[in-house]
Design a protein around this nucleic acid. Structure first.
Lengths: 232, 232
DNA sequence: GCGTAGATTTCGGAT
DNA sequence: ATCCGAAGTCTACGC
């Protein structure tokens, strides 16, 4: 990894065109050839960048660049897509290289897959007298997150699990319900939209379509699952 | 901006929990308090991070940490959400600070707004004898990108413009069409799904619903708009 | 390898 | 301030 602090301007041509006027920025040139251009603010997203696989070539400035005070140009190109990033460097304040080695990577807990797993283990959260048929129940238009069977009679419950529930999730569940209700072995199929947080518009649309909304408490569900009841 | 290359482990607690085992990484501490943890690969997204507003506090390691070889801890917290990032530093290979100043920011060209503007100026691309009613035509469920009027008789055309057209865009347009067709002053309203690239599944769904798909060539439309015909 | 769904999405505009 | 949609989204997973 090479770290450069430089006064530079940047031009990107690819899926769109973008330009960064002359300013002092951090250039991170990673081992895989990728380049990040960061300012001293904003969030984790760089101002501009090139994703791997790509390659960086150092160029001499042309006459126009020389008049502008450019001392060096970096051209970073993605061979396949034709995307190109051109960095015109006017001054280098810092330039160091470091060997970082391979990273073991991130371990996550609490994403949608975890919510789905916990809810599958605790179907009583959805309602009484329900039994899990299966997770990721396959249909022609994609898998239904959870399918439950009514113990007391005919009928099935299809659940769409989201971390954040918005209108798209309701649309998705609606498509599943329409399809599943054509199956006489499953019908009548009712829908439950389960999420840690449900947007108002999504709630309105779901209710309008007879879909029940269920807000999930991940920490509580995780506590139950771990076998550590709150009484102790 | 402070740049640190360090052997460290990282734990994040917030919207989810995440852990990074001990390895050598780049730590970027920006002027706004935010912290990025980068490896020497991957893409522009850091392995872990904390977004502003947040603040970094240096802590002394506890006894367990000392046994593990931790020389220093950084705790980065987001006061409002309670998100917290804890970096356990075992060794610092590099540590420099730099004054970058404020960045003038990125100038973009070729995003959805540009497509929409160009199509509004070139409605003949959609079909003959059509006139623009307005861009961002307001409805109760959100604005329709473009609304056109049929010059030869009754009827309206509603257009959804996307850079990349996938199934969500078709759903969105379908909702608009359903609503607009209830208005006797507009009905019958037909739909056009216009995008630089239309995914096969989206095309199938649109066609099934009687929505016409239109692939847009941004460069060509830009050329026409600039008044520089290709003959010269 | 392609395509789709999720993301600690981030970012910008409009209400 | 909040909500909502776009993004050069990136990334993991299923086919």
């Amino acid at each position: 990894m090479r770290l450069v602090i430089a006064r530079c301007s940047v031009d990107y041509t690819g899926r769109l065109n973008a330009h960064l006027p002359l300013a002092t920025r951090l250039l991170v040139h990673k081992n895989d050839g990728s380049l990040l251009v960061h300012s001293d603010g904003g969030s984790y997203k760089p101002l501009n960048w090139m994703s791997p696989p790509c390659s960086l070539t150092r160029e001499d400035p042309d006459e126009v660049d020389l008049e502008d005070g450019v001392i060096e140009r970096w051209r970073v190109t993605h061979a396949k897509t034709g995307d190109a990033l051109l960095v015109r460097i006017h001054e280098i304040m810092h330039d160091t290289a470091h060997d970082l080695g391979v990273d073991p990577g991130l371990i996550k807990d609490g994403v949608e897959a975890d919510l789905q797993r916990l809810l599958a283990e605790q179907v009583s959260v959805v309602g009484e007298n329900l039994t899990l048929v299966r997770r990721e129940y396959p249909t022609a238009i994609g898998p239904v997150d959870l399918l439950l069977r009514n113990d007391d009679g005919p009928g099935t419950v299809a659940i769409e699990v989201k971390r954040r529930g918005d209108i798209d999730g309701v649309e998705q569940l609606t498509r599943y319900l329409e399809l599943l209700n054509r199956d006489p072995l499953l019908a009548p199929v009712t829908g439950v939209f389960a999420a840690q947080e449900i947007k108002p518009q999504a709630r309105v649309l779901a209710t309008d379509r007879g879909i029940r909304c269920l807000t999930l408490d991940y920490d509580e569900m995780k506590g139950v699952q771990s076998g550590a009841p709150r009484l102790f």
